[in-house]
């Protein structure tokens, strides 16, 4: 553990990503305290104001403070990240471990399901699922969760296959440890490293997907201050007010970038052999 932390700490870019994410987390947790204005508060006298001392990032077409909406949008993005990645992780890892551990027809069925799910470009599948479920924050999280499930399933299956023939697994089974216990006690802890990296990278995917779905009008409800909704509304006012589209996109890019560099840093720290590949 100490060695991993040492390797991670040496990676300046990963540390930068980690620090930026910490700031985002603080913003998300303390949004109502930190945000200078109520993100829903409209002000007819202050519509489309360019960045100024009262509104650092300007105001939108309803006179709402963009900075406050971005800060509250952090909550939405991180909530989507946590829940959708949680769904993909739990379902995907369960599928992947079952396929890798039990093999045979279970593996064949699960692997084919994974292959078929992989045949759909992610944003396209998410759009179809959103058409079925209807636009809402909960449904966005479910749709993104389903879309990224096969990635986790494939990683968990591959890692389980390499781990399951190890002597300690055979030893556990020979003394009568049951399948469930073997999986929880011996398989899961040994396939964690690639999963942790994937969790980090998937947060970035989830934030981007939510923004894309909301941007297309098939994401969260229009009154939710999500970065994607802000971009969707901003594009109609671009000619008059660049700030309405620029700042929410900048926030999304910064968050995704931070998750990407953190993911790369974690991969290097957890598995130095892969360092070359991730560079």
């Amino acid at each position: 553990m100490g060695e991993i932390w040492y390797r991670f700490r040496k990676n300046k870019l990963a540390l930068f990503g980690f620090s930026v994410l910490l700031v985002f987390i603080i913003l998300a947790l303390a949004a109502p305290i930190i945000a200078p204005y109520d993100p829903f508060q409209m002000s007819t006298g202050e519509t489309l104001q360019s960045p100024n001392s009262a509104h650092i990032f300007g105001t939108d077409q309803f006179g709402r403070d963009i900075l406050s909406r971005i800060i509250h949008g952090t909550r939405i993005s991180f909530k989507v990240g946590i829940i959708s990645v949680g769904i993909s992780l739990v379902v995907g890892v369960a599928m992947g471990i079952c396929a890798g551990y039990f093999g045979g027809w279970i593996d064949i069925i699960i692997s084919r399901i994974i292959d078929i799910m992989f045949s759909f470009p992610d944003i396209f599948l998410a759009l179809v699922i959103m058409a079925i479920l209807g636009t809402s924050l909960t449904n966005v999280m479910i749709a993104i969760g389903i879309v990224y499930t096969p990635i986790f399933a494939r990683i968990a299956r591959g890692s389980t296959l390499t781990v399951k023939d190890n002597a300690y697994i055979e030893a556990a089974r020979s003394i009568g440890v049951g399948d469930l216990m073997t999986i929880i006690r011996h398989i899961l802890p040994n396939i964690l490293a690639p999963l942790i990296v994937q969790i980090t990278l998937s947060f970035g995917f989830a934030i981007r997907s939510e923004a894309a779905l909301s941007f297309l009008g098939l994401g969260v409800e229009p009154d939710v201050p999500s970065w994607g909704i802000m971009l969707n509304e901003g594009k109609d006012w671009m000619e008059l007010a660049w700030w309405v589209s620029v700042f929410p996109g900048l926030a999304a890019t910064l968050a995704i970038l931070s998750f990407n560099v953190l993911g790369d840093g974690l991969r290097d720290a957890l598995d130095p052999k892969l360092k070359n590949e991730s560079e």
Binding site: L13, G204, R208, A211, A212, F215, L231, G234, K235, M238, W242, S245, V246, G249, A252, T253, I256, L257, N260, V261
Partner: peptide
């Protein structure tokens, strides 16, 4: 490379239009 993978394509498109 890092920036390219991180920037959402629809936002990049919006910036280009702008």
């Amino acid at each position: 490379g890092l920036l390219g993978v991180s920037v959402p394509n629809f936002w990049l498109g919006t910036l280009f239009i702008l």
